[in-house]
């Protein structure tokens, strides 16, 4: 359906694309300019600052009242542990669904499919009350604890990822495992030694997507975490900036860039692999 365009048509297309790129880059450019502008205020900002400073970036690590560094570490810790255990637990479950034939398998798969449609945040009240009550008995599993937040995320991640991974395992031929088992390997050994190495691409994709998804979550973290030293970046950054746009813009800009840049780089470098994982039925969280 494509034919070579007239020069005018081609030019028009490039203009259109550049307009959209301008729209896409608009906040990015402004936030970068704000982060190196000595003025901390929104009002004092111009697109090209007259002089520049790295002070806002320094403040990121030194602000005692708003420990951004700690918040990022919390985010990385929570997201990393969640992503790691999501991969391990989902792989185990997916292996059973893919390789064993047992009573209840069909029901199990169907329920998994149904459960993963349910957005976990709809149950936010129940999750909050559940952790509130658990906390009365076991304080380290209650509210305001990273470990309970991780457990909440793990629960939410299981359905979709187990389903996705099961689909991938189904495409791995059974013959390798068969020959391994003839040689005396157990199911568990063939899972560890054969399936996992062959499934490395999907494991990596799920790890990264889960990491990014957890890192970007605001709602559950904001409900469950209540003390400043436990905040993730999403909760902390919002607390820092709400109602203070006119006075904290520069520091906020620097924090945003430090918080977003690593994720952005990972995503852009691995876009081809990640996109295939995303479009298998998921929508970005």
């Amino acid at each position: 359906m494509y034919r070579k365009h007239s020069p005018v048509g081609a030019f028009g297309r490039h203009i259109l694309i550049w307009t959209v790129i301008g729209f896409a880059m608009f906040p990015v450019i402004w936030i970068f300019s704000a982060s190196i502008n000595p003025a901390n205020t929104l009002l004092g900002q111009s697109l090209i600052p007259k002089n520049y400073t790295w002070n806002h970036y320094v403040e990121f690590f030194t602000n005692k009242q708003h420990p951004f560094g700690l918040w990022i570490l919390n985010s990385v810790k929570v997201s990393g542990v969640t992503a790691l255990f999501t991969v391990i637990l989902a792989a185990l479950g997916a292996y059973a669904f893919s390789r064993f034939r047992f009573k209840g398998r069909r029901t199990g798969l169907l329920s998994l499919l149904l459960v993963q449609m349910f957005p976990q945040m709809l149950a936010m009240v129940a999750i909050y009350l559940l952790l509130l009550n658990i906390g009365k008995y076991i304080s380290w599993l209650g509210l305001n604890q990273h470990i309970s937040l991780i457990m909440v995320y793990l629960g939410g991640a299981m359905g979709f990822n187990m389903w996705l991974m099961k689909g991938y395992f189904d495409t791995i031929s059974y013959s390798l495992e068969e020959s391994a088992m003839i040689d005396g390997a157990t199911h568990f050994q063939s899972f560890i030694r054969i399936i996992l190495p062959l499934a490395r691409p999907i494991l990596a994709v799920i790890f990264i997507l889960q990491f990014i998804g957890t890192y970007s979550d605001f709602i559950l973290a904001s409900i469950l975490l209540s003390s400043k030293e436990n905040y993730t970046l999403a909760v902390g950054l919002r607390l820092f900036i709400t109602g203070q746009y006119s006075t904290r813009w520069g520091a906020f800009a620097a924090a945003s860039i430090i918080g977003a840049f690593p994720i952005m780089m990972i995503f852009l470098l691995l876009q081809n692999q990640l996109v295939s994982g995303l479009t298998r039925g998921g929508v970005k969280e």
């Binding site: 880059m25 906040p27 929104l42 900002q45 746009y245 906020f252 952005m264 852009l268």
Partner: peptide, 30 residues
Amino acid sequence: YRTLLIIPYSIPGFISCLIWCGLFNTEVGI
């Protein structure tokens, strides 16, 4: 072009939203 256009998608959503909230600020927003 494709890479440049994907950029908004690659930034964690909560950060973009907070930035836009500042850009849309009535009194001082850009």
